[in-house]
């Protein structure tokens, strides 16, 4: 327990010291929330823009932390031999993985507190489906964390860096909020619904926005990603 807590504390300290990671996990989602709520670049089809944007941004925060921050950070740790060095200590892999997971959850909590606070200040009045929203975030964490670690554990650090960021952009573009505005062609929407981003935005929106109904395929798709992602990560991860 002492070893696990020490590792979690170290993970959080190092993340907090990394400006890029703070940017990705806090300021980008915050910027998106304020921008899309206040600036009418995309027609959301409704006047209460923040009600549409806030749940999507909460999903975005999960994606950026569980996939981008975790994936890029772990990729560099692998590159610099940090994982090899830890592998020779009694910490062990199960506790290392647990520490990563707990650190990601702690950051997500912080993100949600800041983002929900900001959204409320922007006039958001969410419906009360918080339990479902949190459950969706946990499943999403498993799905995106699995994706991030699959890339981090099998690719060179710089390729991983590029791919994590690239994938992030693709997932944001196909993350439901864009095509809810009717701007994605049909076949691309079908593909987007099979990727994990759109379903996560969809189920969190359904939980927190009474004006939104979840797509029938969203929960099953998300659950499949949440199972397959970690399995692929666990089997393909190379520690050196």
């Amino acid at each position: 327990m002492k070893a696990l807590l020490a590792q979690v504390r170290t993970e959080l300290t190092l993340m907090a010291r990394n400006g890029e990671q703070l940017l990705v996990s806090l300021f980008i989602p915050l910027g998106v929330l304020i921008f899309l709520s206040k600036v009418k670049v995309i027609d959301l089809g409704r006047d209460d823009r923040v009600a549409v944007v806030a749940p999507a941004v909460l999903a975005l925060a999960v994606m950026s932390t569980a996939m981008v921050s975790l994936g890029i950070g772990t990729g560099f740790e692998r590159h610099y031999g940090v994982l090899k060095r830890l592998g020779a200590t009694p910490l062990g892999r199960p506790r290392w993985i647990a520490a990563k997971f707990l650190a990601v959850l702690a950051i997500e909590c912080l993100q949600w507190i800041v983002l929900v606070g900001a959204a409320l200040a922007l006039g958001w009045s969410p419906s009360g489906g918080w339990a479902l929203a949190v459950a969706a975030a946990m499943v999403g964490t498993a799905a995106f964390g699995g994706l991030g670690l699959s890339l981090a554990g099998s690719l060179p650090a710089l390729v991983n860096l590029a791919l994590c960021n690239g994938l992030y952009v693709v997932l944001v573009m196909t993350g439901d909020i864009v095509f809810r505005a009717g701007s994605l062609p049909g076949p691309i929407e079908t593909i987007a619904r099979l990727l994990p981003a759109a379903p996560l935005v969809d189920v969190i929106s359904a939980a927190l926005d009474t004006g939104h109904t979840a797509h029938a395929g969203s929960w099953p798709t998300l659950l499949v990603w949440a199972i397959v992602g970690p399995i692929v990560a666990a089997t393909s991860f190379r520690w050196e």
Binding site: R17, F76, E77, Y80, G81, V82, R85, A88
Partner: peptide, 14 residues
């Protein structure tokens, strides 16, 4: 055991 690698092995900001 105690292990000292040839190089690296720590996070750059620690």
């Amino acid at each position: 055991i105690g292990v000292m690698l040839q190089a690296g092995g720590l996070h750059s900001a620690i």
